[in-house]
Design a protein around this nucleic acid. Structure first.
Lengths: 224, 224
DNA sequence: GTCAACGATCATGTATGCAAGAATTTCGCA
DNA sequence: TGCGAAATTCTTGCATACATGATCGTTGAC
């Protein structure tokens, strides 16, 4: 294996976490990972440190690395921050969008529309991510775009659960319509407001889902 | 050698960079640092990776670690992002400030006032940082506050140069007054607007200063 | 029978060793 | 004397070795 190992490991682990193959709270054993990826512990450790800095992993000194498990409070706060970042992206994107940016955004929106009409949630979520990334790109601010992408990744493991919220996809798509309209019209404040609400409502829906799941778990615990 | 070395090294290097003892663009030799701190290369590498993730250091594969030197474009973009983050902090803080938060903010403002009256720039800059941190704390959102602090650190090496901008301190203090008033009045949008402008103007002043310095450097290069 | 303390076991944190790529210097040639 | 190429040197990236602190099981006391 010639290429650099650490970046490859970071991406692989990142993908495992974001895709849900590694669950929040799960312990990441250095030796185990080293064996699995057929490298020594050193690049594993370096990858884990990077993931910790990007917020996907938590390293407790002398106790090991764990896939970050955001508590209810941290989740609310994270969605709130994400909402503000997205709002900022919308503000700036509305003012600076090039025709190419608009075309890319509309294409992403069309892909979302297709997924909605097909009722295909599995297709909607990546399309949704692309839609938002198109907004990031249109800000003409790479630092901001990178920050937005970081947080998108960070919340990805939790967003996945939203698949279980009924009719969320249709609502999301309607919100996208309003966002797109504001952006195309060049109305930054309007775009910011819609985007903020769009992300916040996701967070709220998610929190209710979470409490519901916790109740289920508690009931199961009591029953078992 | 007691306690963990890596966190200590990270903090030490962070401090060196933020304080300006290590200049942007400077190379960070692993062996040299290992000797200086009397540890092996391993914890040095881990500290550097962490600093890279927090944006203070850039690691170029096989070429070493360097104190991040933000180009003009990245600087503008970073200040723009910082402006949006601070604006978001203001929006939320205005709505959620407790009496304790207000007291802390007013105390920080008073410390700034003292520095201004004394004409003491060296005292004003830390006081200014405390003022902004008081706003972060008042958001009641630790994730957001942490993010704001990260970027404050990241831009610190560049802000220092602003000491040379004449009358910036007085202008900054007047802007603080408007921000404080909006926050105490609970007007989130007003606070956000003032904070955004406050940070953006810093960025703009800084950019003009930077181009001036570059001209000087070029002249010196031509002359030398 | 329960709890606490001690010891064995294991994982992490750090040090050291080694190989491959980058930087530098020197040597050859024009 | 100036430029280019090869070889040397140096540094990074990864592997391995070792020590310290955590975890878990066992044993003993109450």
């Amino acid at each position: 294996m010639r290429g650099e190992a650490t970046p490859r490991l970071r991406e692989a682990l990142e993908d495992d976490i974001v895709s849900g193959r590694l669950r929040p709270g799960q312990r990441l054993d250095e030796v185990g990972l080293a064996e699995r990826f057929e490298v020594s512990r050193t690049p594993i450790r370096e990858a884990l440190i990077q993931l910790a800095s990007s917020g996907l992993v938590e390293i407790r000194p002398r106790r090991g690395a764990f896939v970050v498990l955001l508590g209810p409070r941290a989740l609310i706060e994270s969605f709130e921050l994400m909402a503000e970042i997205e709002a900022a992206c919308g503000r700036l994107a509305a003012r600076r969008m090039t025709p190419e940016d608009k075309a890319a955004l509309q294409a992403a929106h069309a892909a979302c529309a297709e997924a909605v009409q097909a009722g295909d949630m599995a297709a909607y979520y990546p399309a949704n991510a692309v839609f938002h990334q198109a907004i990031y790109a249109a800000t003409a601010n790479r630092v901001l775009a990178e920050e937005a992408r970081r947080f998108q990744l960070r919340l990805q493991p939790y967003r996945r659960l939203q698949l279980r919220v009924p009719r969320r996809m249709d609502a999301s798509f309607l919100e996208h319509e309003a966002i797109l309209a504001a952006l195309v019209a060049g109305d930054g404040e309007e775009a910011a407001t819609h985007l903020r609400a769009h992300v916040l409502v996701q967070g709220e829906r998610f929190m209710s889902l979470l409490t519901a799941l916790q109740d289920e778990t508690e009931d199961a615990a009591k029953a078992g």
